[in-house]
Simulated assay, not measured.
Amino acid sequence: MTRVALITGGQQGIGFGIAQALKEAGFRVAICAELPADSVAVREAVSALGLEYFQYDLSEIGGEARLLDAVGERLGPVSCFVSNAGVPAKIRGDMLEMTVESFDHVMAVNLRGGFFLAQEVARRMLAALDGPYRSIQFITSVSAEMVSVERAEYCISKAAAAMMAQLYAARLAEAGIGVFDLRPGIIDTPMTAAVKDKYDASIQAGLVPAKRWGEPADIGRAVAALASGQFAFATGAVIPVDGGLSIQRL
Rank of each mutant, 00 (worst) to 15 (best):
G220K: 09
S143G: 06
E145H: 09
A122M: 04
C155K: 00
A118L: 04
A217M: 11
P132K: 01
A205G: 09
A127E: 14
A175Q: 06
V223P: 11
L207V: 08
M146G: 00
Y154G: 00
V106K: 00
E215V: 10
A169D: 00
L172Q: 03
K158Y: 00
V179Y: 09
P132F: 04
A194T: 05
V179P: 05
M191V: 13
S157A: 10
A170H: 10
F103Y: 13
Q119V: 00
K158L: 00
A232L: 08
G176T: 06
E120D: 09
G114I: 02
G206R: 08
G114T: 14
M107H: 04
G178F: 09
S135R: 05
I219G: 04
D218G: 11
A118S: 14
G131I: 05
K211F: 14
S102M: 03
V149L: 14
S102R: 03
F231I: 04
K158W: 02
A201Q: 11
D104Q: 13
A128P: 00
E150L: 07
E215D: 13
R124E: 02
G220Q: 07
V149M: 13
T99W: 13
R212I: 08
A122G: 01
F138A: 02
L129E: 15
L126Q: 08
D200A: 05
P190R: 06
I203S: 13
T235Y: 13
P190Y: 12
A159H: 09
A205K: 15
R123P: 00
V147K: 07
A205Y: 12
Q230R: 14
E150P: 05
T99A: 08
D104E: 15
A118V: 03
L167A: 10
K196R: 15
V121L: 05
S157Y: 00
G113C: 02
L117K: 02
V208Q: 08
G220M: 10
A160F: 01
D104K: 06
P132C: 01
E101V: 11
P132T: 00
G236P: 11
A161F: 05
K211P: 09
V106R: 00
E120Q: 08
Q137R: 07
A128R: 10
A193V: 05
L111M: 08
D188S: 11
F103S: 00
L182A: 05
R124Q: 06
Y168A: 04
M164G: 02
A118E: 03
R221D: 09
A169Q: 02
G229T: 07
V106A: 02
A159Q: 07
L126W: 04
Q204L: 15
Y199E: 05
L111N: 00
Y199T: 03
Q230Y: 12
L172N: 01
E150T: 12
Q137L: 15
P216H: 08
M146I: 14
V109I: 12
H105W: 06
R212D: 10
A201L: 11
T140S: 10
R221I: 06
E145P: 01
A127W: 06
Y168H: 08
V142F: 11
M107Y: 03
E153I: 02
G214H: 12
E153R: 02
A193P: 09
G229I: 07
A162H: 03
A173V: 02
F180D: 03
D197T: 08
R221F: 11
Y199V: 04
N110F: 12
P184D: 05
R123V: 04
F231H: 14
